[in-house]
Design a binder for these strands. Structure first.
Lengths: 225, 225
DNA sequence: CTACAATATGAGTAAATACTCATATTGTAG
DNA sequence: CTACAATATGAGTATTTACTCATATTGTAG
């Protein structure tokens, strides 16, 4: 259809149907916009560069989108609504259903490993989403309602299920547990990117095992022995 | 000295000696810059507005700082080096020393509560520091070496001490523990600001107690009973 | 008080860039 | 093929804004 070769191949490239009713031109513009935004951030990106990368004239951009901000929203909002959010929540849901009879530590390992892969692949986009959510309430709302809340609900459902099975303490709020395990995993991701020399060398699966073990059994020496 | 009334009163306002060898004018400019940056972000801030807020002419700004970026660095770097970093690490160090004989859960509670206060007070500044660290390696380096690493070291020292006393498991890396408790606390802070309707109502101290309890004793029902 | 240096001023400049519009191209119906 | 509509083009515009510089003010030494 198009002989345009994308400069930056995103993991979701080709999922054109995520964006409803987009013409070929519009799709090219949005793909180019995302490329440029992830490379230099929104503010430092220029419409002329987006046009260049998209292979269209600058005027064409403004035939399809009224303002530069509209390009930002048209790029990121459908991505969150149709890809990042559902992708996160559904795969979580599937994993939990699929491994219903597996020990909780194994499921947590699988879930965290899976999330890790997703987030790593999406990181360039998530980074700009998070940064710009600070300045554009429209993005903030979608991020909250279509990504964060979805992930949260899936996780809470899983923990509640395991709690009702008697595998998790019921004197603690599942919210507390969710925040802690998500926070622990997130801290590990951040640490890996901040201190590659320390964390990259370690065996990833072993580290995840330790995180899950710590979450389930606690840091304290059991004095009851 | 100056009859200029700051629009936004930062918690550290007045700590002029944090910035070595600053004239009154330079101090006014940097204070104004921080105010404007925290309100609109770096990109959306203009040198003319900084000048207006500082109560000086725009030309004066460029007599003291060559570029807008230099204003950013001159504002945030000393703040991290002399205030945020030491403030975080020292108070942690002090708390740990001071309460050497207290049970670990009490110390953790105190430390997290203390961190919570600090971060809440500094949040407007931290937010812009974190965002701009994404685009300016100079900021990233200082943030890493003068804030993150300092906090890390203090925390690791504390955990190691408690581990050697036999209060914490020694089959787990202190790094794993540090990441988990820091991540759990961070996730709670984030959650509080994202979902005020849910988290603000809860009693803060009780929630912190639950977080520490979960960290120390784990989420799993103890099957040994 | 005077002479001179240091500093401050703000109107002005040059460059960047979001956005426009008259013209050109492409697609399509009869 | 023709006529017309839809879309694309890119040179051009208006505005914003980081930065400059000739002039004015302030501070100071003799």
């Amino acid at each position: 259809m198009s002989d345009h070769v994308p400069i930056f191949q995103h993991s979701w490239t080709g999922d054109e149907q995520l964006y409803e009713e987009l013409t070929d031109k519009q799709w090219k513009i949005l793909k180019a916009a995302l490329t440029v935004f992830t490379e230099k951030g929104y503010s430092a990106s220029t419409t002329s560069e987006i046009a260049r990368v998209a292979g269209v004239a600058e005027g064409t951009i403004f035939r399809h989108f009224k303002t530069k901000k509209e390009i930002l929203l048209a790029t990121l909002i459908p991505l969150m609504q149709n890809f990042i959010g559902p992708g996160a929540a559904n795969s979580l849901h599937d994993l939990v259903l699929q491994y219903d009879n597996l020990p909780i530590e194994d499921v947590l390992m699988l879930v965290i490993e899976d999330r890790q892969k997703h987030i790593t692949a999406l990181w360039p986009v998530l980074r700009i989403v998070i940064i710009e959510a600070n300045f554009h309430p429209e993005l903030r709302d979608v991020l909250l309602n279509n990504v964060v809340k979805k992930v949260q609900e899936s996780f809470l459902a899983f923990l509640k299920q395991r709690q009702s099975k008697g595998e998790l303490r019921d004197d603690l709020d599942v919210w507390t547990m969710m925040r802690t395990i998500v926070g622990a995993a997130a801290a590990y991701f951040v640490s890996r990117s901040l201190f590659p020399e320390r964390e990259q060398d370690h065996d990833n699966r072993q580290e995840l095992k330790a995180i899950v073990d710590l979450f389930l059994r606690g840091a304290q020496v059991d004095v009851r022995y």
